[in-house]
C-alpha cells in the first residue's frame, strides 16, 4: 500500500524526488504520511481534496492483511 501511494504521488508531481511515504503502525490503524514538495501539495490533494480522497478509496480497497483501517495524511 505504501508503494501504491508512492506510485500515484510520483506520477502526479513535478518534483518526484521529494516524494516520501512513511508507514506508521498504530494500534488502531495504519497511518501513511505522504510528503511532497510544497509546490506539489495541490497536485496530490486536488480540488476539495478529490485526489486525496480517491487515494483513500483505493487504499481501503487494497488487499490489507492486517485488517486495520488505513489513514492517509498529507504533511
Amino acid at each position: 500500500m505504501k508503494e501504491l501511494i508512492e506510485y500515484i504521488a510520483r506520477s502526479l508531481v513535478d518534483n518526484a524526488d521529494a516524494v516520501r511515504v512513511d508507514e506508521i503502525d498504530t494500534p488502531g490503524a495504519l497511518v501513511y504520511e505522504l510528503h511532497v514538495a510544497p509546490e506539489d501539495m495541490g497536485r496530490v490533494i486536488g480540488k476539495s481534496g478529490r485526489v486525496a480522497n480517491a487515494i483513500r478509496v483505493l487504499l481501503r480497497a487494497s488487499v490489507n492483511r492486517t485488517g486495520k483501517r488505513t489513514l492517509l495524511e498529507i504533511v
Binding site: S11, R50, A54, V57, L58, A61
Partner: peptide, 25 residues
C-alpha cells in the same frame, strides 16, 4: 469485486486517478 466497490466507488476512484496520471504524463 473489491475493485468495483460499493456503488462503483472504487472503480470511480481508479478511473479518476488513472485519468490524472495519464493526462499528466
Amino acid at each position: 469485486n473489491n475493485l468495483i466497490g460499493q456503488d462503483g466507488e472504487t472503480l470511480g476512484a481508479l478511473q479518476f486517478i488513472t485519468r490524472l496520471i495519464v493526462n499528466h504524463k
